[in-house]
Design a protein around this nucleic acid. Structure first.
Length: 990
RNA sequence: ACCCGGGUGGCGGAACUGGUAGACGCGCAGGACUUAAAAUCCUGUGGCCCGAAAGGGCUGUACGGGUUCAACUCCCGUCCCGGGUACCA
């Protein structure tokens, strides 16, 4: 009998489905365990081998925990709203709901083939009205809340209104929001008065009151500079912009003022930072998040100005360097800009501001050149009364700190470069630590030229100066964060509509009874007027004065993990009973790419829902594991530098591509004489030495990996594929390939193929790079169990690595070997009820111990190795005893569920193996009475000795010293000491 | 530039708190079975050297140094690769 994995897997997958074996109950006496995968965006490309890596790991862990007696929640769903579906709709006219549904079907069938233990009854889809009803509901809770800094909690806005009515806002000043609610898209304005009394509050009209409340709401609407992407017609979050271009598509991004929704995540900055200590994230992940939050401690200092009664307030983390200030710099957008410029400097400053405005975000990012202009005004040093020139420069950002700095060129690289560039004299306050060539940001120097700070260590001076400044009222301690409030709206169609109605400039929440506010059907996905979303094109929508923005991709994913706990609840997003039972996600698996997006937002939502009393925990995830990315090995049509033959890709005569090649690379053009084939211009023989760097780029072109083996492209096969460009001519040393035939250079047809070499390179796996390996193919060829084990065997889950199918045979061989412990080809069933020998029991228990340890610490690759060793050893002993094979199957189940289930039943068990109990280790089978120890003399291994495991240090020494080999080495002298490391080795130190 | 990871055979990777480096798998070489192939099984496999063999010696975890009886593991310096951030004062 042979191992017919296809039949086995199909059979068991159907049975698991029919019997609803993975259905999870919210009511169980067992302890709970929640294993979650980051749900996928159902793209049109389907799954490649990289996707299931994390899913397989989580599936193994979920199954393992189940065997260990836990009630395991292991759900799956789809992050179904998003830009690509909408882009697809624009391009192909297919409604996103339709294409998304199709993609989901495809994903599901692919996932099913791998044999995951998801409870599909709990599936969520963020684009489903039953789901986004609650996304909208949670949004309304955030809209109706504010963050109380006194209690450090999210609270209802009604409470704030009561406070205002009683005492105004003296105890709760307006939070530092970067996005002011008043004003228009022509310019943001701050509130006329930021402080008001109870009487003031009562005298304000409704609009003013609402505008003030908007300044406090957790989800709020305001005008602000946003990252506007013209090509995508939408606003992007900071983390969706990379180097001044959009993450998706790489289109240019500019700053634009628009009415936007925001989440006041900045108020949670400290808690998000502090919470990191309570959760098990990798150090790298924690660091990414804390860098993003960017907390810094420093001081705000006021400088008097010569030209104005106002003071210039700066933020610095190094108040100890106060006597090293040689100039001040303010941001071009700073509100004092207009006031402080002197008449003499007005022309120059205006010109400079003009220049700054002309520079796009992208230019500023790309070329960091030193620019700036003197304003004509001087600031007065608060201690020395020295006059300090005030400059304006784009290197100071308006959005951080106070938008103005005190520049200390001897201690700050940017200030130093600025001073050099504009010939501003530099004061040295750190003596020999400053060499005049570059700034030195040390805190370990003793201060010089610093008046009352002279001789003090900089580190110590920081607090000393602040104390002094606070005493005389010119400065105070201040904590700043880099993190900004999160933009929460998109001018797009395929997202959750906001349950908001606008009346007379006031945003009114929709009644909760009206939820879900369903996304209406549209005929066109084109943007609405003035940058508004497609919803603005629907008269029925605009007549109701409904908000025309939609929510961003991360809205649904910020809370989906809660819905899995209670997916069919129509009365609440998740009952308190359900969320109390399941609590935190015990194990969350996903990629690092969500470090500062999804993982931060979902943490914030959890905190808000917790504060408002809807859930009992304030961190969503207990432990996070980041799976690595599986890269693809791309194949390029290209000269292989190792081999002398090479190729050239050619297009037809009037092709643009060909022209480009010719125009931009003379080397290629002049290489040899051209030939022609019909309307095609044959390319030229390019020799290896002629291929310049430039031509290499031009010559590189992806080819489908399915036609490549051992770096040789099978052109005959490729030719009959749709992806083959019929006009291509391929050259090698020995001949050329055209119209499906090989010719030599005398144009005679060749009977055999020539070797056309490719070059391989590791890249991200993607459809466009033609390097995708489809899990379906592998499952069909080797079975899901082999595929699962091989993905794990490849290396640590956390590590990124290129996919290489070669080794899969070894894992497949292992499963076949396992099968043969049960079946003989001719004799059939082989297992017996015979009692196991101590040697066999030892193998079993050694394996149980190893598998348990490895699975617990997520070392699945070494666990798979342990299985291989066990099966090899049992195979050698011809052990086919039920007593050994039964427990072995249970151990293996998480890794290869189908074959284990099959064999488990064959052994005569009636229960399904998923409900079996993970076997315990019986240490007695592991313990040996004696062990062979290597003995080293001064670190050099000399001999081996058999020593009883319970021997004392003294006994060990006696045995060693009576050994002939050791004696010889010791030459009669007594050893200094004998180091006996249990289970490792013995070292004799002479 | 700054902050994190990481560098081990032909390859993927083991070595968990310093204790016989290279587990396990791939690949390769040789052999068994077979008319042959597939499948399966066995043996060998870091490098160099001595030996007919059994066996033995030296060297070896990016590079240079250090701590230690003992270093892939700890410390210092250098180089290279991957990831994150990017004028955040």
């Amino acid at each position: 009998m042979e191992y017919k994995f296809q039949k086995i897997e199909e059979y068991w997958q159907n049975r698991w489905k029919e019997e609803g074996i993975y259905k999870v109950d919210n009511d169980s006496p067992k302890p709970k365990y929640y294993v979650l995968d980051m749900f996928p965006y159902p793209s049109g490309t389907g799954l490649h081998v990289g996707h299931p890596l994390g899913y397989i790991a989580s599936d193994i862990f979920a199954r393992y925990k189940r065997l260990k007696g836990f009630n395991v929640l292991h759900p799956m769903g789809y992050d179904a709203f998003g830009l690509p579906a909408e882009q697809y709709a624009i391009d192909h006219g297919i409604h996103p709901a339709v294409s998304t549904e199709e993609n989901i079907k495809n994903f599901r069938s692919q996932l099913d083939k791998i044999g995951f233990c998801f409870d599909w009854d709990r599936q969520v889809k963020t684009s489903d009205p039953d789901f986004y009803k609650w996304t909208q509901w949670i949004f309304l809770q955030l809209f109706k809340s504010w963050y109380n800094r006194k209690t450090q909690k999210t609270e209802g806005i009604d409470g704030l209104i009561e406070i205002f009515e009683k005492e105004g806002n003296k105890n709760h000043p307006v939070p530092n929001s970067q996005f002011r609610i008043s004003g228009s898209d022509k310019g943001a304005e701050t509130l006329t008065s930021s402080h008001f009394t109870a009487a003031d509050w009562k005298s304000f009209d409704a609009l003013t009151q609402q505008n003030i409340l908007m300044e406090y709401r957790v989800a709020y609407c305001g005008y602000g500079e946003v990252n506007w992407c013209e090509a995508l017609g939408t606003v992007l979050a900071n983390d969706e912009v990379i180097n001044g271009v959009s993450e998706r598509g790489g289109y240019p991004v500019v700053k634009k003022k628009l009415r936007q929704w925001y989440l006041r995540i900045t108020e949670y900055a400290d808690r998000l930072l502090g919470g990191l200590e309570k959760i098990e994230f990798s150090e790298a992940m924690k660091e990414m998040q804390s860098n993003w939050i960017g907390k810094s401690y420093g001081a705000e200092i006021d400088f008097e100005l010569t030209s104005d009664s106002d003071v210039l307030r700066v933020y610095t983390t190094r108040p100890d360097t106060i006597f090293g200030v040689d100039f001040m710099v303010i941001a071009p957008e700073h509100e004092l800009m207009g006031k402080i410029t002197t008449k003499a400097q007005k022309g120059a400053v205006d010109k400079y501001i003009e220049y700054v405005k002309s520079r796009s975000e992208r230019e500023r990012m790309a070329e960091k050149i030193i620019t700036g202009c003197f304003t004509g005004t001087y600031a007065v040093h608060p201690f020395s009364r020295r006059k300090i020139p005030v400059w304006v420069s784009e290197y100071v950002l308006a959005g951080y700190g106070t938008g103005a700095i005190m520049a200390v060129p001897c201690g700050d690289e940017r200030d130093f470069k600025f001073a050099k560039h504009f010939n501003i004299p530099i004061t040295n306050i750190i003596g020999r630590h400053f060499n005049g060539e570059e700034a030195n940001a040390t805190k370990d120097a003793l201060l010089e030229n610093s008046d009352f700070l002279d001789g003090m260590l900089m580190r110590d001076a920081i607090d000393f100066v602040i104390d002094r400044m606070e005493r005389i009222g010119i400065g105070h301690r201040k904590v700043n964060y880099k993190m900004r409030d999160a933009a929460f709206s998109r001018q797009r169609y395929w997202g959750e509509p906001f349950p908001i109605i606008w009346k007379n400039g006031i945003a009114y929440p929709l009644d909760e009874k009206e939820l879900p506010l369903e996304l209406p059907h549209v005929e066109t996905y084109k943007p609405g007027p003035e940058g508004e979303g497609p919803l603005a094109n629907i008269p029925a929508w605009t007549e109701r004065k409904l908000e025309t923005n939609t929510m961003p991709g991360y809205a649904g994913s910020s809370w989906y993990f809660l819905r899995y706990m209670d997916p069919h609840n129509e009365k609440a997003f998740c009952s308190r009973k359900a969320s109390d039972y399941w609590g935190q996600v015990d194990l969350y698996i996903g990629g690092t790419e969500h470090a500062v997006g999804h993982l931060l937002y979902s943490r914030m939502w959890t905190k808000a829902l917790h504060d408002l009393g809807y859930i009992g925990h304030d961190e969503p995830y207990k432990k996070l594991v980041n799976q690595g990315m599986i890269q693809g090995i791309s194949q390029f049509e290209k000269r292989d530098p190792e081999k002398t033959s090479f190729m050239r890709y050619v297009k037809s005569k009037d092709s643009e591509v060909f022209k480009t090649v010719v125009a931009s690379n003379q080397t290629i053009m002049n290489a040899t004489q051209p030939h022609s084939f019909g309307n095609r211009v044959m390319s030229h023989y390019v020799s290896a030495s002629m291929a310049t760097e430039n031509s290499e780029q031009l010559l590189k072109k992806h080819v489908p990996i399915s036609f490549v083996s051992s770096n040789i492209l099978d052109l005959t096969k490729f030719y009959s594929d749709a992806q083959f460009e019929k006009d291509s001519i391929y050259y090698t040393d020995d001949g050329y390939f055209v119209d499906g035939e090989w010719f030599d250079y005398s144009h005679n047809k060749l009977a055999s193929k020539c070797n056309f070499f490719t070059l391989s390179e590791v890249e991200k796996m993607s459809k466009s790079k033609l390097n995708v390996i489809n899990p379906d193919d592998l499952c069909a060829k080797y079975g899901a169990d082999t595929f699962r084990m091989y993905e794990m065997f490849l290396g640590p889950v956390e590590q990124s690595k290129p996919w290489d199918t070669k080794g899969i045979e070894g894992v497949h061989r292992f499963l076949k070997k396992l099968w043969r412990l049960f079946y003989d080809e001719t004799k059939g069933k082989m297992w017996t009820d015979e009692k196991a020998s101590p040697a066999e029991l030892k193998i079993l228990h050694k394996t149980i111990k190893k598998i348990e340890e490895d699975t617990e610490r997520f070392s699945f690759n070494t666990a798979v190795s342990a299985f291989m060793i066990a099966v090899n050893e049992l195979s050698d002993l011809k052990c086919n005893k039920k007593q050994i094979l039964g427990p072995l199957l249970i151990l293996l189940t998480p890794y290869a569920p189908h074959i284990c289930e099959e064999l488990w039943h064959e052994l005569g068990n009636t229960t399904t193996i998923i409900d079996a109990t993970f076997p315990g280790v019986e240490e007695k089978y592991l313990i040996e009475s004696t062990k062979n120890y290597p003995v080293a003399v001064n670190g050099k291994t000399r001999t081996e000795l058999t020593i009883a495991l319970d021997a004392t240090q003294q006994e060990v020494e006696e045995i060693i010293l009576s050994n002939e080999v050791v004696k010889k080495w010791l030459e009669g002298k007594p050893p200094k000491k004998v180091i006996y490391v249990k289970n490792k080795m013995i070292n004799v130190v002479v």
